[in-house]
Every structure is written in structure tokens, then in C-alpha cells.
């Protein structure tokens, strides 16, 4: 039928235009290439960490010494991961951590050391091992520090250095610092030391309390600004507010960026935070609640509205049929 042919032509050109300006153009725009012009495919690897990305990056830079260093480091991590950790022994080692990770909300060398209450649940095991061995290497931000001991957590090297000790403390965290974790807890522990979320009234100091007096409110605001200044001095720029980030970046970007920030944004001062799959899901849930709270309502209402119009269209078709029946 002629009318259907015309419809097919219209649909074809509309879809072609859509494909060109959306999937194709966006792929071209965000494509990363190495120095030979070959595309670098950035894939998520399920929030596990074995240094593959870091080694590949070093290889692309053509820095042989760096490649060797990265390979040696992640091989070490693998060795520790194979050791059997003793949680009871780990508890003693963990006492070293609490010196800084104490919930006092005091900035130490750039950021407030995060709470570790759910560290065994939201972070990957390999990453935790890597972090204790060398925080700068684990975060893939070693280019920022001439010496790892300059990293805010750099002193860990002098307190926990024995491989068995590392295995023990990680085993302890996985056993005792795990359990049920809410999206808010996961987000606070993993992200809030740098990022604010104004839509949930969260700052680098955590939840903003309610104040009776304007004076107290302003005093808190000043404390927030002071903390932000410290973070800014350390990071080079104030990390962005994450209120709308879930709408501003695609799923693929979020996943791969959180797994390895350098891959998507070479040179960024954001370190890898080492979330595992569960940790990421919780963080994503929190950001969705902040920046896209209508997602659930949208998905629920959608079929009803579309169903209504399908029904409407069927009725309209029958009306048209009856109107045009005796015209030809």
C-alpha cells in the first residue's frame, strides 16, 4: 500500500538521522585514541582491580620504568591476596588505622580520613591490599607524588608493611567491617570527603544539621568553606557537587570512571576509590535518589500512558474507518 511505503520512507530517514546524531556522533566525540590513532576501548571490568588498566596506560606512555614499577606493584598485590589472612591478628593491626580513621571529622593532609565501618563490604579486596601497600599506586595517582609518603595516607608504609599483616587487616575488615550497608553509608564513606551533594544537604563535613539560630548556621557554613578550601588546596580544584551527576553522565561513563578515573579523564586528581560491585550499586542508588528521584515513578507510569494511547489509536482507527467507508 502506498501510504505504508511513504511511512517507511519517513521512518527510515528519521531513524538514520537519529543514529547519526546520537549513537554515532557521541561515539566519535568521546572516542579516545592512542598516539597511533588507534581507538582505546574503555570497558568496565566488574569493579575488580588487578592493575591491567594502569599497566596498559603506562605502556601507552612508552615509559618502560613505569611499566616495570606498575607490573611489580600489582604482582605484589597478587601475592598478598593469595595469603591466608587472620582476622583476629588483623584486629591488632587495624588499631593503626583508627588513629586517623576515627570519625573525628578533622582534615588530615588534604581530606578528612573516611570512616571504615563498611570498608570490607564496599571495597574490593585487591584494592584494599594495594591501598595499604601504596595508596598513590592503588589510586593510580602516583604521578602526583614524587614520593608516596607525601600522600595523605603515605605514613601507612611505615606502620603496616609486612605482607602477612596486610593480609590479616584486610581479612579483619572483610569479616568485621562488613555487613548490611545503606546507599547513604556507602556514599558517605566512599565519596563525601571530597564531594558535596547539595540536593541532599550533604557537604564535605557530612550531613548539614538543622539550626535554630542563624548564627550557628553561618558558623557551620564557615566550617564547610574552610574544609572545602583544604580539599581544594589538595586536589587543585574543588571536586564537583554530585547532585545531578547521575543525569549528567551516562551509565558507561560512571562505571568506567569510578573504576579508573584516569582512563576517562587523563590527569584528573581524582584517585580510584576501589569500590566493588556492591559498593558501586549502592553509590549509584544514592546518586539516583539525589539527581533522578522520579526514575521509579517514570518507569511505573510509562506503560499506562503508552497503553492509553495505544487504546486511543485503536479507537481513532475505527472511527476513521467508519468515516471513510463509503468515500471510494
Amino acid at each position: 500500500m502506498r501510504e505504508l511505503k511513504i511511512f517507511a520512507v519517513v521512518v527510515f530517514f528519521s531513524l538514520l538521522t537519529y543514529w547519526l546524531v546520537e549513537p554515532y556522533a557521541h561515539h566519535q566525540m568521546h572516542m579516545k585514541v592512542d598516539k597511533d590513532g588507534k581507538e582505546i576501548v574503555i570497558k568496565s571490568h566488574g569493579f575488580t582491580y588487578d592493575g591491567t588498566d594502569d599497566i596498559a596506560e603506562a605502556e601507552r606512555k612508552g615509559d618502560a620504568a613505569l611499566v616495570t614499577k606498575k607490573k611489580a606493584f600489582w604482582a605484589d598485590v597478587k601475592t598478598v591476596a593469595a595469603l591466608k589472612g587472620n582476622a583476629a591478628a588483623g584486629e591488632t593491626v587495624f588499631a593503626n588505622c583508627i588513629g586517623c580513621h576515627n570519625g573525628a571529622n578533622i582534615n588530615m593532609g588534604g581530606v578528612i580520613p573516611p570512616n571504615l565501618d563498611h570498608s570490607g563490604a564496599i571495597y574490593d579486596k585487591n584494592y584494599l591490599i594495594a591501598l595499604i601497600k601504596d595508596p598513590a599506586m592503588a589510586g593510580n595517582v602516583d604521578h602526583k607524588y614524587a614520593d608516596t609518603s607525601l600522600h595523605p595516607m603515605g605514613s601507612i608504609k611505615f606502620t603496616v608493611s609486612d605482607n602477612q599483616q596486610i593480609a590479616d587487616v584486610v581479612a579483619y575488615m572483610q569479616e568485621k567491617k562488613a555487613g548490611e550497608v545503606t546507599p547513604k553509608e556507602a556514599f558517605t564513606e566512599a565519596c563525601v570527603r571530597c564531594h558535596a551533594v547539595r540536593y541532599t544537604k550533604t557537604t564535605q563535613l557530612g550531613d548539614t544539621p538543622k539550626f535554630k539560630h542563624k548564627k550557628d548556621e553561618l558558623a557551620h557554613e564557615i566550617k564547610v568553606i574552610e574544609e572545602q578550601d583544604l580539599v581544594k588546596a589538595y586536589m587543585g580544584n574543588l571536586p564537583p557537587d554530585l547532585s545531578m551527576m547521575i543525569r549528567a553522565r551516562g551509565e558507561h561513563f560512571m562505571e568506567t570512571f569510578i573504576e579508573n578515573p584516569q582512563g576517562q579523564l587523563a590527569g584528573t586528581s581524582m584517585p580510584r576509590v576501589g569500590l566493588n560491585q556492591e559498593g558501586y550499586e549502592k553509590v549509584k542508588e544514592y546518586l539516583t535518589e539525589a539527581g533522578d528521584p522520579s526514575k521509579k515513578a517514570r518507569e511505573q507510569l510509562g506503560p499506562w500512558v503508552i497503553g492509553f494511547f495505544v487504546f486511543f489509536t485503536i479507537l481513532a482507527f475505527l472511527w476513521k474507518k467508519s468515516m471513510w467507508r463509503d468515500l471510494h
Binding site: 510509562g302 489509536t313 481513532a316 482507527f317 468515516m323
Partner: peptide, 20 residues
């Protein structure tokens, strides 16, 4: 009557895009 039918088809597309 024909316009309304075409509009119906159009609104199915329209609200598919709105929601998804």
C-alpha cells in the same frame, strides 16, 4: 478522523520518548 488517528500513532512515539 484521519488526523486524530495519525495523532494517536504520533503520541505513542511521543510518550515512549518521554518515559524511556
Amino acid at each position: 478522523s484521519k488526523d486524530v488517528f495519525v495523532m494517536g500513532v504520533y503520541f505513542i512515539l511521543f510518550f515512549y520518548l518521554v518515559f524511556y
